[in-house]
């Protein structure tokens, strides 16, 4: 398999990358979703702008009350980071479930959320951790709350000519608990259902799902029902999962079964962080 011909650029700064990013160009980060799609000739960009090695897009750091993950930071770098293990352990747990070791070496968090595969793991985790996606274009930078970022099937709030530079997360307060629970599709290893859940010290919850519908989403119905985190409340909250939504269907899971799984995984996630 070989893709259509294209040009290739490897800028060293975000500004250079923006300058290269014209209409028919596509950004290349880890490339493990893009290159297979190109090989199958599912799309035909005229140019690839390789941003994987731009230093400004890499790394994990604490900035005051925020943790900042550069868009071109790989899954492997995230799951090995002490800072992540300390403050956002769900990310280490979840990143270890993405693809396979080789994919984790190359795949990036920014690439994953920009691609917005409806079954990808990062979107649910990024929403649950109250991420803010920072994007840059020739006209400046702006921030998009993760809650508003995933707008549909492979669709995001990103506009043409924008590059994700980093994702920022509030440093969770002492005593915050979080988990990512995934029911894996046995062939692709994407999520049939993935549930990211956070319990804050005040007992409030943030719960987000991937794989369930056409885009990752925050489920406030579940969050509101979790109440005192008693077994009964958790059961009741899990029962509210994806209420009234249109769900994905494929040969691994019908709508009814996927809904059932989402409830089960919601419950498992809530139980895991209930005390």
């Amino acid at each position: 398999m070989i893709s259509y011909a294209f040009d290739y650029a490897r800028p060293t700064t975000v500004e250079d990358a923006l300058a290269q990013l014209d209409d028919d160009a596509k950004l290349l980060a880890g490339g493990h979703s893009l290159i297979p799609a190109l090989k199958l000739r599912l799309s035909a960009p005229a140019k690839l702008v390789d941003i994987a090695r731009i230093p400004a897009l890499k790394g994990i750091r604490q900035d005051g009350n925020e943790l900042v993950i550069g868009a071109a930071t790989t899954h492997k770098e995230i799951l090995s980071s002490d800072l992540i293990k300390e403050h956002l352990p769900m990310f280490a747990e979840g990143a270890a479930l993405i693809g396979d070791p080789m994919i984790r070496y190359k795949g990036t968090i920014g690439g994953s959320i920009a691609h917005a595969d409806p079954s990808a793991d990062w979107p649910a985790m990024v929403i649950a951790a109250e991420g803010t996606v920072v994007v840059q274009s020739k006209s400046g930078t702006r921030s998009i709350a993760a809650d508003d970022f995933f707008t549909g099937f492979y669709m995001t709030a990103l506009e043409e000519g924008e590059i994700i530079t980093e994702i920022r997360f509030p440093v969770p307060a002492e005593g915050t608990r979080m988990t990512y629970q995934k029911f894996t599709q046995p062939a692709s290893r994407f999520a049939i259902v993935g549930c990211a859940a956070v319990r804050k010290p005040d007992g409030s919850a943030r719960v987000a799902f991937t794989g369930v519908s056409d885009a990752a989403f925050r489920d406030t119905g579940v969050e509101e029902a979790v109440g005192d985190w008693s077994t009964a409340a958790i059961e009741a909250a899990a029962a509210k999962t994806a209420e009234g939504m249109e769900l994905n269907v494929d040969h691994f899971a019908s709508e009814a079964y996927r809904h059932h799984l989402a409830r089960v995984y919601c419950k498992r996630a809530l139980v895991a962080i209930s005390e």
Partner: peptide, 10 residues
């Protein structure tokens, strides 16, 4: 059909 039913929905 994972991708295609999503495309159709969308």
């Amino acid at each position: 059909n994972r991708v295609m039913s999503g495309v159709a929905h969308s």
